[in-house]
C-alpha cells in the first residue's frame, strides 16, 4: 500500500522543493541587502544554515524511525531510517563544505574549530558509522535493528557531544563569531533562510521516499505483490 502512495507523493514534493528553492534564492540574492561587514560573502548563509539545520534534524527523524522500527518491529519504519541516513550525511557534508567556504573569506582559514562546525564533523562520523554498520550486516533484519540501536545511542550522545565541544571551544580560544548568529538578522535574511530550509525539507522528503521505494524493491522480492507492479510488467 505504501509503495504506490509514496510514488504519487514524490513528484509533488520534488516540485515544491524546486519552487521554494527558486523563491528562496531570489529573496537571498536579489532582495536581501548587502551586509555591512561581510559584503556579499555572507550570502552563503542562505545555504549553510538551512543545510546545517537539516543535517541535525534528519538525524533526529532517523532516530525516531529507528526507535519505532525497534519497538514495534515494523520493517517499514526501519527502512525509513536507513533511507534517511545517506541524505543526512550528504547535508552534513554540504554544511561542512559551505562552512569552510564561508570561513575562508571571513577568517582566512578553511577550517575553524568552531563549536558548531566541530559537532557537525562528529555528526558526519555518526552518519558514516551508521551506514557502515548497516552495509556490514548481510541479513537486512539484523542490519535494521543494529542500526537502530546505534542511531538511538547516537541521538543520546548528540547533546553531550555538542555540550562538550562547546565547553572545549570556549576553553581554548574565545568563542569565535559562531557561524549561525550572523550580524543582526534583517527580516529578509530570515525569510530567505526559512524558505531555503523549507525547500531542503521538501527535497529530503522526495529523495527519501524514492530511496525507501528502492529499498522495498530490493528487500521484498520474495513477496508476490511486487510482480503485479506496472513498472515490472513493462
Amino acid at each position: 500500500m505504501f509503495y504506490p502512495l509514496a510514488g504519487k507523493l514524490i513528484p509533488w514534493f520534488a516540485v515544491a522543493a524546486a519552487m521554494l528553492t527558486i523563491i528562496g534564492m531570489y529573496v537571498g540574492f536579489f532582495m536581501a541587502p548587502t551586509d555591512a561587514q561581510q559584503g556579499e560573502g555572507y550570502r552563503i548563509i542562505f545555504l549553510h544554515v538551512p543545510v546545517s539545520w537539516m543535517s541535525m534534524f534528519i538525524y533526529l527523524v532517523m532516530a525516531f524511525w529507528a526507535a519505532i522500527g525497534l519497538a514495534f518491529n515494523n520493517r517499514l519504519a526501519a527502512m525509513m531510517a536507513s533511507a534517511l541516513a545517506p541524505t543526512g550525511a550528504m547535508f552534513t557534508f554540504l554544511s561542512l563544505w559551505t562552512g569552510a567556504l564561508w570561513g575562508k573569506p571571513m577568517w582566512g582559514t578553511w577550517w575553524v574549530w568552531d563549536a558548531r562546525l566541530t559537532s557537525e564533523l562528529i555528526l558526519l562520523f555518526l552518519y558514516i558509522g551508521f551506514m557502515a554498520l548497516q552495509s556490514a550486516v548481510d541479513e537486512p533484519r539484523r542490519a535494521d535493528k543494529a542500526g537502530a540501536v546505534l542511531a538511538l545511542v547516537g541521538v543520546v550522545n548528540i547533546p553531550i557531544i555538542y555540550f562538550s565541544v562547546q565547553w572545549w571551544n570556549t576553553l581554548h580560544q574565545g568563542a569565535s563569531v559562531s557561524l549561525t548568529q550572523a550580524p543582526s538578522m534583517a527580516a529578509l535574511m530570515l525569510i530567505g533562510m526559512l524558505l531555503m530550509a523549507l525547500a531542503s525539507w521538501m527535497y529530503t522528503v522526495a529523495i527519501v521516499l524514492m530511496r525507501v521505494r528502492c529499498i522495498i524493491l530490493e528487500r521484498e522480492q520474495h513477496a508476490g505483490w511486487l510482480d503485479e507492479l506496472k513498472e515490472v510488467k513493462q
Binding site: 562528529i122 562520523f125 557502515a132 554498520l133 543494529a146 545511542v153 565547553w167
Partner: peptide, 27 residues
Amino acid sequence: SLTLGLRGGSVLVALLVLPLYVPVLIF
C-alpha cells in the same frame, strides 16, 4: 555487541565508537 560476528568487525567498532568517545576525550 553491535558488530558481533561481522567480518571486518574490529575496524567497524572503531568507526562506530570513536565519535562517541569525543566527550570523554575532551573532558
